[in-house]
């Protein structure tokens, strides 16, 4: 039987400052998106962690399966040429 006892789970993403990406910080429970945003504000930004919040219902996230790890990610290990490390970086260019 489906009970109404638990509210849906939401994933919370916070942008810590302008120009940075939203980063996943955790999850919480709320009955809808308005409440989820309010709760996220109270639970995850009380120490000035952010300037913007996204909330996403957890059940809308499609995730890769841990069993597929080998076939998905291992093949990339032997392909160092995919990293652009063979270039000379000109003087004066920082943050590369």
């Amino acid at each position: 039987m489906k009970t109404k006892k638990d509210w849906p789970l939401w994933e919370v993403f916070i942008r810590s400052k302008q120009g940075l990406n939203h980063k996943h910080v955790g999850s919480l429970r709320a009955s809808d998106s308005v409440m989820a945003l309010d709760n996220a504000r109270d639970v995850y930004t009380r120490r000035s962690e952010g300037i913007s919040i996204w909330v996403v219902p957890s059940n809308l996230i499609s995730a890769s399966h841990p069993n597929d790890e080998e076939s998905l990610f291992d093949p990339a290990h032997s392909k160092v040429y995919r990293h652009p490390t063979f270039y000379d970086v000109p003087d004066g260019i920082s943050h590369m």
Partner: peptide, 11 residues
């Protein structure tokens, strides 16, 4: 009543 609201009220 729930963790999230506990934190909200304490804030």
């Amino acid at each position: 009543p729930i963790l999230e609201e506990d934190i909200a009220l304490t804030n």
